[in-house]
Amino acid sequence: MAIDVATAKGKIRDYIVQTSHADANKIKDESLIFKEGFFDSMGFIMLITFLEEEFGIKTVDSDLIEENFESINAISEFIQRKSQG
């Protein structure tokens, strides 16, 4: 089932802002959330759990690459691909 892109990005952004305790204005769709230090290892594990529960996807080892998680845009595209595939 396709997931609405704008809705998905909104949910991901809300989650990141809420759990990283970062200034909401600093987190843009293209912000590099790991490179810029918004999330640590625990944050990454929790993000994966959130995405699986919120969007009903299942993450496998080969998914754990920077291109899939580096920004809200990347995460949104990743869950679109997973939900269609």
Binding site: L32, F34, K35, F39, D40, S41, G43, F44, I45, I48, L64, I65, E66, F69, E70
Partner: peptide
């Protein structure tokens, strides 16, 4: 060597 933190 990646920008992603490690996963356990």
């Amino acid at each position: 060597f990646s920008n992603l933190p490690p996963i356990f």
